[in-house]
Nucleic acid binder design. Structure first.
Lengths: 144, 144
DNA sequence: GACTTATTGTTATCAGCGATAACATTCGCG
DNA sequence: CGCGAATGTTATCGCTGATAACAATAAGTC
């Protein structure tokens, strides 16, 4: 019986960890984006805000380095957060500026963290128990 | 000692599997793209070609479903592969067309598979042995 | 202190991947 | 036959990230 007689395809791709990694990231990313969208936040926004929360006064460049984002890409990101009243910028010296969350920003990041933690919990629940504890360390080994 | 006195930031993000997943996917994806670039292939190209290889005569729509790509996005993809002489399209009926690899396409996908397998091997080598076997099943559980 | 180098913030532009909406043509089923 | 579903297609958009260039400023060196 040929595969063309059924509607399922032979698919060798899920055997590749790299492919599976990309698919998993896409699928989960889309879902999280949708949830953060209800808070008017993108994923990068939430990441950046959590980092600012943990490191008040941090500079835009340092943030970019930590998130592995190009400095150039921080500009629209920070502008967006500032325009939304979520962060403040205060000049440190003539060329650097320190970032801090506003009160609204702190509230928003708390909501975002709640959304994210709920989501991560659901994510891990999908993973069979015997693999669960290995996921995070395995992933971190791939990029850290 | 304040964190501002050192150059490392407090970073709570790598504790989130979702974040780690995204970072890992980005990092590995960039690396693989660079390697496939030497074969004049994108990642999606290689994926699509492997799927066509395993299912000769498959239709564009079926391919899109399997890869979770929008039908609309298959158009430039298939055009690119056809223009590069890697695939052939043969009308099945008035509206469907079957896809097949050309001889060049078969050679190219073989090279691509070799590149990918080497890459995947290196990827897994980065993961501590005790976590290694759990990565693929855990990832697959997240999207399949 | 002067000079050179590195860093910061910024503009502009591009690529990859994916999503949505709309449309004409054609197939399949009742 | 007729109608709903599927196919291929066009056009357009959004998110994420990358590169190149630039002016201003800070930091390190002699």
């Amino acid at each position: 019986m040929l595969q063309s007689m059924v509607d399922t395809l032979r698919d060798p791709l899920p055997d590749f960890p790299g492919y599976s990694l990309r698919r998993a990231a896409n699928a989960t990313s889309a879902e999280l984006s949708a949830r953060l969208g209800t808070l008017d936040l993108r994923q990068v926004d939430a990441s950046a805000m959590m980092l600012i929360e943990s490191n008040p006064g941090v500079t835009g460049s340092a943030l970019a380095r930590q998130l592995d984002i190009q400095r150039a890409n921080m500009v629209p990101l920070l502008k967006r957060l500032e325009d939304a009243g979520l962060i403040d910028r205060a000049p440190i010296d003539g060329k650097s500026q320190g970032l801090e969350l506003t009160t609204t920003g702190r509230e928003r990041v708390t909501a975002a963290r709640h959304t994210i933690e709920t989501f991560e919990h659901e994510l891990l629940a999908r993973v069979p128990e015997e693999h669960r504890a290995h996921l995070l360390p395995a992933l971190n080994a791939l990029w850290q």
